[in-house]
Design a protein around this nucleic acid. Sequence first.
DNA 1: GCGATCAGCGGCACG
DNA 2: CGTGCCGTTGATCGC
Lengths: 261, 261
Amino acid sequence: MVSLEEAKKAVGEALNCGRLALLIGRCRVFYEGRAASKLSEGDRLLVIKQDGTFLVHQATKMHAINYQGPGSRISVRIDEGENALVVSSQRTKPLLERIDVKFFEVHFADSFHLRDDEKLKLFGSERELSELLMQDLHLIEPGLFPLKQESDIRKGTIDILAEDFRHRLVVIEVKRREAGLDAVTQLARYVDEVSKRKDKATRGIMCAPTITPNALRMLEREGLEYFRLDYEIGNPSARIRGLEKKQKALHEFNDSKEPNT
Amino acid sequence: MVSLEEAKKAVGEALNCGRLALLIGRCRVFYEGRAASKLSEGDRLLVIKQDGTFLVHQATKMHAINYQGPGSRISVRIDEGENALVVSSQRTKPLLERIDVKFFEVHFADSFHLRDDEKLKLFGSERELSELLMQDLHLIEPGLFPLKQESDIRKGTIDILAEDFRHRLVVIEVKRREAGLDAVTQLARYVDEVSKRKDKATRGIMCAPTITPNALRMLEREGLEYFRLDYEIGNPSARIRGLEKKQKALHEFNDSKEPNT
DNA sequence: GCGATCAGCGGCACG
DNA sequence: CGTGCCGTTGATCGC
């Protein structure tokens, strides 16, 4: 158990010296900003980082139940009337937003200096897959020629723009995980834009490890193509293992408008 | 400073008693699963929750640099050769994923019991706005009649389905924040689906506090409508303040295909 | 359990 | 600065 005064001192020290502050105690939480929330009394962990990051964690779940990103202004005061320690975070960045955490009891409070100059090295991002695929377009089909990667058009950003052996434009959308309706809609939007802009017949290809049945149905109805993208994540980088054209069998179109005769 | 043995004991105790564990120290982090990552030596905060949540935080930024959601299996061992404490988290849920945090020095390690039965009460969600709007459709235009909220169609979920005074179907998409291209695409998808399915002329209305210029251009080209949604978040609930039809002036269509005659 | 969408999304990279 | 979009997205809700 820590007195409210001691806890206040610990947080103040963290703020002054640019250190990490940790607080554990029984509190209520109040938030108002883009949305609003209330959380009644209970034990929580409060993490305050030197950049203004402000995280209120409950005992379970991954995400902080209330939070504020870097850049928020933090203040501490003791509410004599309620005999509570109030830690507040305020920012003005997207909007005026504030969080108040009112501690009635503090079980732990301290500050720590974290020395850390390292940045995470991440492998297996979509960008990385896209770059790999860019160099191996023949995996999709022979004669496919890369034109541009990350091509900005008005309706968004095309992962890969290519040309096939018949000089048709090909828009390729790469997904590192299962493609859903949103991914198909995205691809359709790009194909639409490119074909109109260039006034050329344009193909659209979705490359993803899997695709939901619904999404595949819509994709094929829109005249787009799906290739199953099989990839492996080595530690220095990812590697494309295979790429296989997939198509629904005709009889699987069981809700097609045309009967099968 | 805490000895590796003591730190191991603290984590073990947390695991046994279903408590929250906090570890601060100099470590390396290794992750492999849906992606892979490496993080070289530095000071970090490790949070382990009773539900298996596993968070590695650096000194800045909101998000944990490496993480694992609830349900992961945690283990601790001391690597005698390297004289390090290795805390690992493994799960199999979406895939086999593991994180290893190798501590060479531990500055702090303890476990805490958090008693907390409360759930966050959040106000101002899209669902809430949608419900409010459902009861005030006349704010959009007189004679608009609500048919259904949260209507599932094959291509997704329609926020509000209504009928106007001419008995045309109206698909309404509500956004609590700025509408972008994706939101417009989504609405267009629903309108397309509904009009085909019911074989009726169908309108599409986007209600959002703001809309990006790009999105507005695309929306109007698709023949959809935008209403500026002005709302306020009181604490017990949100309130719709106003709803105003917005339309681009003709001269703003500077890249329209048709000249203005 | 899968599937689609929301999130106080956050964060990044490019115009 | 906006704007689009990825994310080891996570979390929720409806089927």
